[in-house]
Design a protein around this nucleic acid. Structure first.
Lengths: 379, 379
DNA sequence: TCGAATTTCGTGCACGTGCACGAAAAATTT
DNA sequence: AAATTTTTCGTGCACGTGCACGAAATTCGA
């Protein structure tokens, strides 16, 4: 802890003014280390980047001096002098407009400039979300790019294992976003705690619910195309646990809709509400809550509490209109940006992420605060 | 928009691999500009930093070339070569442990390293929040430090005007956090939309409220010490507007407590609930909701919905325990960090903030998502 | 013990910019 | 037109690091 003394600011040796203390004051260069250790800067440099050709005695001596002086290479000078270039591959699904993965792309987009400043080229490899062959091909392309690091969303379990195994063999670090495979040796993970997000959704949906109410969960019908690891499943599991613990007498009715078949959806929903006109609470665990909101609007249904996930533009609109009561979102762009940042820190500053698993906050959006979540990209 | 073509990645002129396009490819240096304009890099440098001693014709010529090539000075080389140092003064209230302003200090603390990398020294000048003379003295110290920029929270209206007027006269940019004085020529503002945050609090507090309920608003009794601009007042105004619009038959009961007098508070609260045992909804607009939570805990009161503001550690604890139902928070550290970042961008990169007024998101914390708001500092 | 092979090390240029110094060019005065 | 002042401009070093190249020191082999 820093002590703030009586005076609002403190003066130290003449001109230097310090309130809350600054970090390192005097800059120690490689020359200082060289002089103190009686060797040349070339040798010091060899030790710093341990690229060999140094005798054991000199190595020890130099490391002592580095330790003593607290020498840290000047990043700017280093970047300026270095001609090394790195390639970072981001492996994500292809997306249509207004889909979740578009937000991920946004984060990548934001990071490109920053990465470029560190001699890192970001290339994005995309695949069809519901086509394993496409994912396999994308993995090949990823490896062919000879990346220095990889950021990926592990949609297909086995193929991801194959990819990450090869990456590990090559010593290439990789960072998961969105979900992760715990058995692989990933460098870091950035994502929403899916199970918890289901619990949160349950708690918001069931607010002042009465005993034995029937509620609805509308799900996406993917047919055969469902990839193996679907994070929304654990979200649903969290929700069901909450219901079981706090509302055991509640019935959860499941119904399936299709993302790209509006007519089909209207038929299904009409039939559903025909059978269950008493349902006043609806939740979706995928990112398509706006489809339900549109239906509710179309049929002018009243008094329905609708809870959903993910910050798609259409979802936000539905929140603003009051059709969606609570939208639970994560800061996807920030999440991606942070994951790329972790990679930069690893590659350039040789720093490991503070935490391996980084769970992003789950933001609750309502009609009254949604306006302030539009430009939430931080720094 | 970037076109993602059929192949998952695209190859451009041989080795360069690009998916989502990188920014500037080839690096244009001052030498290129010099050569193309038929002048020396010294002259180009004089134009770039417009420090005169350049004929009109050469100036125009060089600017043309700069424009054509899209020349941008290399920040690293520049930082490496420059010996300039800047001082940034942060003018904030002194604080005790667990107070709101401690969060602000956290943001400053985080920014110190980054600023240092840009040759910027951050010094913090503090004053007593309820002592105008102290604020005046702090202003003097701020000016005496000859700052290159200032970040401040405008607690005292008139004195702030005096300070900012002098800063403007000197051409020193300043950034407000927390609240702002619209009549001054500030560079940027970062804060929570206070009025809106009152509305949000009202909407959360009154969830499924019945007609004509009495609710309570516990406020802080500052005696004579209240500074002129108290942001919580506009928060309260937002709340009252919401009540008036949506719950006109509701009675809002006001009661005053003291931040540092627990015995007094117990007496006051006991008396209050003696008179109004029917009150089941309580809101505070200051950051001290944990005081109420502690009382509720102590007296084992049940079924009370408590809503408050600000991410003090004690408040978060109260949310986790379920004593506080909703805590509305802003990302104070991020906010401060961003404001300092805007200053760095201005001083070093000569870039103005994208938006002058930056309203931070209002996060809703409950028992079920509070755990993920602890380390929400974003990059 | 001497030359060759190997290991270890030092020197010096490059990276792109900032800026001091002094030279060249232009303008002004005598 | 020469001398002087003023304006304009170019050169070169410094910033701290990376790395290539070749020199020096050490080890090895016969």
């Amino acid at each position: 802890m820093f002590e703030i003394t009586g005076a609002a600011s403190v003066r130290l040796h003449g001109k230097r003014k310090v309130g809350i203390m600054n970090s390192d004051d005097k800059k120690i260069t490689i020359k200082d280390v060289a002089r103190l250790s009686g060797l040349s800067k070339g040798t010091v440099d060899r030790v710093v980047h341990n690229r060999g050709e140094v005798s054991e005695t000199s190595r020890i001596k130099i490391n002592e001096v580095i330790e003593k002086l607290g020498y840290k290479p000047n990043l700017y000078a280093s970047l300026l002098a270095s001609k090394k270039r790195y390639t970072l591959v981001c492996l994500i699904p292809r997306f249509g407009q207004g889909e979740y993965w578009e937000l991920v792309r946004g984060g990548i987009q934001r990071a490109i400039d920053k990465a470029a400043a560190y001699n890192i080229d970001i290339i994005t490899v995309q695949y069809e979300q519901f086509d394993a062959a496409s994912f396999r091909k994308a993995c090949d392309e990823t490896l062919a790019a000879d990346p220095a690091a990889v950021m990926l969303a592990p949609i297909y379990h086995d193929l991801t294992i194959a990819l990450t195994t090869e990456l590990s063999r090559r010593g290439v670090p990789f960072v998961y976003i969105d979900s992760k495979l715990d058995t692989t040796s990933y460098m870091a993970y950035y994502g929403m705690p899916m199970f918890q997000s289901g619990i949160l959704g349950g708690s918001l949906l069931m607010e002042s619910a009465t005993q034995g109410e029937a509620i609805a969960n509308f799900r996406i019908d993917r047919g055969e195309a469902l990839p193996q690891d679907n994070p929304t499943l654990s979200r649903r599991a969290g929700f069901m646990e909450f219901i079981g613990a706090h509302h055991p007498s509640t019935t959860v009715l499941n119904e399936f809709i299709k993302p790209y078949d509006p007519l089909h959806n209207i038929r299904v929903l009409d039939a559903f509400f025909d059978r269950h006109p008493e349902v006043k609470r609806i939740i979706t665990f995928n990112s398509r809550v706006h489809l339900i909101a549109e239906y509710i609007e179309k049929r002018s249904l009243n008094g329905i509490a609708l809870v959903g996930y993910d910050m798609l533009a259409k979802n936000i609109d539905a929140v603003r209109n009051g059709q969606v009561k609570y939208l639970i979102t994560q800061r996807t762009e920030t999440q991606v940006y942070r994951s790329i940042n972790a990679i930069i820190a690893h590659l350039i500053m040789k720093r490991e992420p503070a935490a391996k698993d980084n769970y992003m906050s789950m933001d609750i959006l309502t009609k009254y605060n949604a306006d302030y979540y539009f430009d939430i990209f931080e720094i």
